[in-house]
Design a protein around this nucleic acid. Structure first.
Lengths: 124, 124
DNA sequence: CAAGCAGTTGAACACTTATTCAACTATTTG
DNA sequence: CAAATAGTTGAATAAGTGTTCAACTGCTTG
């Protein structure tokens, strides 16, 4: 929708707090930062990736062993590791044919912990 | 893939650490908890929802004003608020025609903060 | 009560995404 | 060197998702 038409096409509630709206508009982070951050956080929104991160939480593990633990193909794991690499959540070390992955971001443990805490509070 | 065929169809790397694999298999949270938690965390993986949560971080705001701040339709906002309600991230209070939303989960601020921290560390 | 406003909802659409499959590289081993 | 192993990659497919649109509920006000 074109921005100049927005006020015509959309709401402008009668009793709305113009000052609050102005304040909030200013407070929203820049679009680029929103895009990057939501992309980063979406990494945690998939069960397979969450399990991989859980596995790497305390150990350095090769692709094959991750696949073995999760009972999934190496291909599927490798695809997900590519995403984790892309967002700098994991790093890797090659040793012969094997590639060992490990966590490289200190926010990961915190975010996962908050996630599980929420689930436990809500569903138990 | 059927589990009984997994070892045949998939890897079981020669030099793999059987003890580590066994330990990791036991450590993985139950599937139900993984599903619930990844679903919860996926809420943060969308730009619009991230902005809504940001807005509600400190203020109680009606649907129309959220739409106004984000230059989006009330319908789009309402659909996203439904998801935020479903995962108990927000609660609401009706006052006449208006519905005021606010945060209802104490993990939200933490998770968002970690997300933005990560983005700032990586891209700046 | 009729009109307008705030908000919700379901269907439709375009877009994204996770896994599978097959082909590939690179390293190790017999 | 040939075969096997560890891992990666691109294309294809099936499933999931966000916004739009139109229709709807419910509240308020003239």
């Amino acid at each position: 929708m074109r921005e100049e038409n927005f006020d015509i096409l959309n709401c402008n509630c009668k009793g709305s707090d113009k000052k609050l709206i102005a304040k909030l508009k200013k407070s929203i982070p820049k679009e680029e930062k929103i895009v990057d951050t939501s992309a980063f956080l979406s990494v945690f929104g998939d069960g397979t990736r969450l399990k991989i991160l859980w596995i790497l939480r305390k150990d350095e593990v090769c692709v094959c062993d991750i696949a073995s633990v999760l009972k999934m193909t190496k291909s599927a794991i490798s695809h997900q590791l590519r995403i984790l690499k892309q967002f700098r959540l994991v790093s890797f070390r090659k040793d012969g044919q094997k590639v060992y992955y490990s966590l490289s971001d200190h926010h990961v443990a915190d975010i996962i912990e908050k996630g599980f805490e929420h689930t436990e509070e809500i569903y138990e």
